[in-house]
Computed example of a mutant assay.
Amino acid sequence: MQEATKEYCALVVNHALSKAYFEGKTQKDVADEINVDPAGLSRAKKGNQNLGITAINTLIDLFGAPKVSEGLYLEAIVLEDFSQFKLLYQSIHDDIFNKELVAWFNHEKIKNKTFKLLAPYYPYKYPSQSRFPSIFDKEEPSEAVKLWVDEFIRSPEFLTWVREAVESIKFVKSENDMEPRFAINDLEFKGVNHWVSDEDKASLLNLGYLIENLEPNYSLFTSSVYQPKFSVSEVVLTGSLVDESIDDRCNQARQIKSPLGFIFSGEDFPEHRHGKPNKYRKIQQFNLVNSAYIDLYLNEKMEYRLRIFESTSRYSNSYVIKNVHGAELFDIYNQLREFYFLPQSDLKSLKSSLAEKGGYIPGALVL
């Protein structure tokens, strides 16, 4: 928190008054809003009086914070230090994927398709239906059916198939196929086996992954909105850009643990593919980080910040690491490059940039 000095108070007051004048308010209006004497506000404006932290915070709430220094605006996940980045990295991606999976399976078309895929395994027979009851096709499922579906998708039998199917996935390519396709183990429960496409199996794999690894109490019949554990914050990175990655393409793609599945986008999926109606996007085998940028910032208080931007096969992420100790900077920088399979740096260009920006270089003789 910024120290409530007379100088900072004057900065806040002048900023607030400028915005107030733009909004058609007077200096007396501002004084009344924070319950101070107009003469006291005039003295604070000139730096001769400190209005106190309560009045300062009220002014900031009403008119925003004053400009302190120029910076770069971005939206990012803010982490305290490099160790927290490594510790939470997989959990952050699980969080993103969880949100997308819940949105996907809450979509009515996907939900209805899932009912149909599971229908042949429904244990109760309907005399009027030779293959599966009509409740899976057009009508609203009964409470008994809903209960059965939610029990089935959490059953050891279904989850065992999910694990074994993931392990069995292999590429299959015929002479007529332009792209390799995936072969996934057949669905068979209690002696019932029916043909299911690999795309539909992939959807069921994601459902099993969601329940087993991310959201054990998920229900297909509750349109719940997933509450993310990691929020994206608005950030202004102040200071100078010391160094930015030039070789952004990773030498090899970093794999993020997730099941075989679709590129999810909630309700926004393409309606046509190859000129034919299609509700699903192309299957991806893994979520891969294909490129990454690592930027180093140094502000006027000699505080180092790292900004990381990564692009995966499904989405993009931005991170800001707040606390980077100067003595550990070069080690962390190369650890990050190794983490993303970027070419290692001899650090000469980074040290040159640091020297130009007034940064600290451990071991260097300053003359």
Rank of each mutant, 00 (worst) to 15 (best):
329 L>R: 00
84 Q>F: 05
120 P>H: 05
69 S>V: 14
178 M>L: 14
259 P>H: 03
34 I>M: 02
153 I>V: 10
121 Y>C: 03
205 L>A: 02
12 V>D: 00
14 N>A: 07
311 S>D: 12
44 A>K: 01
273 R>C: 08
37 D>P: 04
334 N>E: 13
350 L>I: 13
348 K>W: 13
191 G>A: 14
230 F>I: 01
122 Y>R: 06
4 A>E: 09
308 I>G: 01
48 N>H: 15
146 K>N: 07
309 F>C: 06
201 K>R: 09
259 P>S: 15
131 R>G: 04
112 N>I: 10
146 K>P: 00
151 E>Y: 06
155 S>K: 02
97 F>S: 03
157 E>L: 03
148 W>N: 02
238 T>Q: 14
242 V>H: 02
90 Q>M: 10
340 Y>R: 07
208 G>W: 00
290 N>P: 11
26 T>A: 04
203 S>P: 01
365 L>G: 05
255 Q>K: 15
212 E>M: 07
55 A>G: 05
270 P>G: 07
135 I>Y: 05
240 S>E: 12
140 E>K: 14
181 R>E: 09
39 A>P: 08
352 S>Q: 15
64 G>L: 04
91 S>E: 13
97 F>I: 12
189 F>C: 07
197 S>L: 03
66 P>Q: 10
46 K>H: 14
290 N>W: 14
30 V>S: 00
363 G>K: 04
106 N>T: 05
121 Y>F: 15
82 F>S: 03
20 A>R: 04
303 E>C: 09
18 S>H: 12
187 L>N: 01
132 F>I: 00
281 R>P: 10
167 E>F: 13
90 Q>A: 13
121 Y>D: 02
198 D>Q: 11
87 L>R: 15
248 D>N: 15
79 L>D: 00
127 P>L: 01
171 F>Y: 14
180 P>R: 06
240 S>Q: 14
103 A>S: 12
198 D>F: 11
131 R>D: 06
20 A>L: 06
135 I>F: 06
249 R>G: 10
184 I>C: 05
226 Y>I: 05
42 S>G: 11
7 E>G: 07
102 V>D: 02
330 F>Y: 08
